[in-house]
Computed example of a mutant assay.
Amino acid sequence: MTPNPQAPSTVQPWLAWLYLALAVAGGVLPWLANLDYMRQYGSAFDIRLFVQLANANPAAQSLSRDLLVGASAITVWMVIESRRLAMRHLWLVLLSSITIAFAFAAPFFLFLRERRLAELARSGGHQP
Rank of each mutant, 00 (worst) to 15 (best):
E119I: 01
A106L: 13
E114L: 00
R48L: 10
L92R: 09
R113V: 06
Q61V: 12
T75S: 13
V93H: 12
A59G: 04
V51G: 02
R48Y: 06
R83G: 07
S97H: 06
M78G: 00
A56M: 03
R113D: 09
A60S: 13
N57S: 15
A101L: 09
V69N: 03
L95Y: 01
A59V: 12
A103C: 03
A71Q: 06
T99I: 10
L120A: 12
S97C: 08
V51H: 00
P58H: 05
E81Q: 12
L110E: 07
L92E: 07
S96K: 02
V76P: 12
P58S: 10
L67A: 10
F104C: 11
A56E: 10
W77M: 07
A60P: 08
A59W: 12
P107I: 04
R116T: 07
H89A: 11
P58C: 03
S72W: 09
A86V: 15
L112P: 02
N57D: 13
L94T: 08
A56S: 13
L85E: 04
E119A: 11
E81S: 05
S72G: 15
L120F: 09
S96F: 02
F104R: 08
T99E: 09
V93G: 10
S96C: 08
S62M: 13
W91H: 04
A60M: 14
P58T: 04
I80K: 15
L117V: 00
A103G: 04
V79N: 01
A71C: 07
E81I: 00
V69Q: 02
R115H: 14
L67M: 15
F109R: 13
H89P: 02
L92V: 14
Q61G: 15
L67N: 12
L85D: 03
A118P: 02
R88L: 13
A121P: 07
L53N: 15
A105V: 05
W77E: 14
I100P: 01
A60H: 14
S82Y: 05
S72R: 07
R65H: 14
A118D: 07
A121N: 09
A73F: 09
W77A: 12
R65W: 15
V69P: 02
S96P: 00
L95W: 05
V51W: 09
A59N: 11
A73M: 11
N57M: 08
S97T: 01
A86Q: 11
F104Q: 08
A71G: 09
W91A: 11
R88N: 14
I74H: 13
F102V: 02
A106N: 03
Q52L: 13
R83N: 12
L92F: 15
V79Y: 03
R48A: 05
I98K: 04
A59Y: 10
S64P: 06
M87S: 11
M78Y: 00
